[in-house]
């Protein structure tokens, strides 16, 4: 865990410092030019003139103390910048995961039970189309239809009241869920098929239990394990997708902050964001491992 965090931080730090241009040049806009001395003063103040290793060590020491530094672009603490966005990204991702489950589980299960029928073929073709569609394009199409032609939902930004907020969450989360829906549906179907062919399910059926009970009590819980594996494994790609989707819908989350900060060369913010992203990925993997033990009693930690 700790080597991982150090690795992630180092890589981010190195990457962002390799990008040409620095944040001070960015402050110096086109309509107004900072003088050389002024820029030097800012660089001095934020320690940007020190050799990279010095900056790196200082950053790591501060990080250990819980200080993520100051955003040069907005002059506010990185912690403030991130804490403003983190909840939005978490809400967006979790809503998307829930949507994925709500859509994929029934379709996948029905496909498996009706294997080989038109329903199955239709559902699987649908799933493959979902996988093959560019999510950001799907988002634009949704925006066009529901935001503009039908005028049912807000197209961009985030609502303030709970109802408005929920409405503004719909399009981005549906779009984001597209990244996983087709994929998870396929996994649900194939793992369901696999479980249905296993001995104990056959035995249960042979014992005279109704198909419905067998499916619900025996097959389903076991078929869920790969689904959890996949969703946790895909969590990072969901976060990555959120970066683009947040940009499309103007959702004020961490992904948008990261991209904008890369554009602004705001080192501290980028490093902070990427760290938080990495932490979320690591955390989700941890939670998944714990969830296994609840679902599958065979898995226990030594």
């Amino acid at each position: 865990m700790i080597p991982l965090v150090i690795g992630v931080t180092t890589l981010t730090f190195a990457l962002i410092h390799l990008i040409p241009g620095d944040a001070v040049e960015m402050i110096s806009g086109e309509t107004r030019q900072l003088t050389v001395e002024e820029k030097e003063r800012i660089r001095e103040k934020y320690g940007l003139n020190d050799p990279l290793p010095v900056q790196y060590v200082r950053y790591m020491v501060n990080l250990a103390k819980g200080d993520m530094g100051i955003s040069i672009g907005t002059r506010s603490p990185v912690k403030f910048e991130i804490s403003q966005r983190l909840p939005d990204t978490i809400i967006l991702t979790i809503t998307s995961i829930l949507l994925v489950l709500v859509i994929s589980l029934p379709i996948g299960i029905i496909s498996a039970l009706k294997r080989g029928t038109v329903i199955d073929t239709g559902a699987m073709t649908f799933a493959l189309i979902g996988i093959s569609m560019p999510a950001f394009w799907f988002g634009i199409m949704l925006m066009l239809v529901f935001g503009l032609y039908l005028d049912w939902l807000p197209t961009v930004g985030q609502g303030k009241t709970p109802l408005e907020f929920a409405k503004s969450l719909i399009l981005p989360s549906v779009t984001l869920s597209l990244i996983l829906v087709g994929f998870v549906t396929r996994i649900v179907r194939s793992s369901m098929l696999e479980v249905l062919s296993l001995d104990y399910v056959r035995t249960a059926r042979a014992k005279g239990l109704s198909t419905r009970i067998v499916n619900a009590r025996h097959a389903l819980p076991n078929a869920l394990i790969p689904v959890i594996t996949v969703i946790s494994g895909q969590f990072a790609s969901l976060l990555g997708g959120a970066v683009v989707i947040e940009q499309v819908f103007g959702w004020p989350g961490l992904g948008r902050l990261t991209v904008n900060s890369i554009f602004r060369r705001d080192y501290m913010v980028v490093t902070g964001c990427v760290l938080v992203f990495a932490f979320m990925v690591i955390l989700v993997n941890l939670v998944t491992d714990i969830m296994y033990t609840f679902i599958d009693p065979r898995i226990r930690y030594q």
């Binding site: 925006m143 503009l148 005028d151 807000p154 197209t155 961009v156 930004g157 499309v248 819908f249 103007g250």
Partner: peptide
Amino acid sequence: MPDVPAAMIALEAGD
């Protein structure tokens, strides 16, 4: 609203 086309839709929708 950095995304101008989206902003144009928001303007027309009264957002």
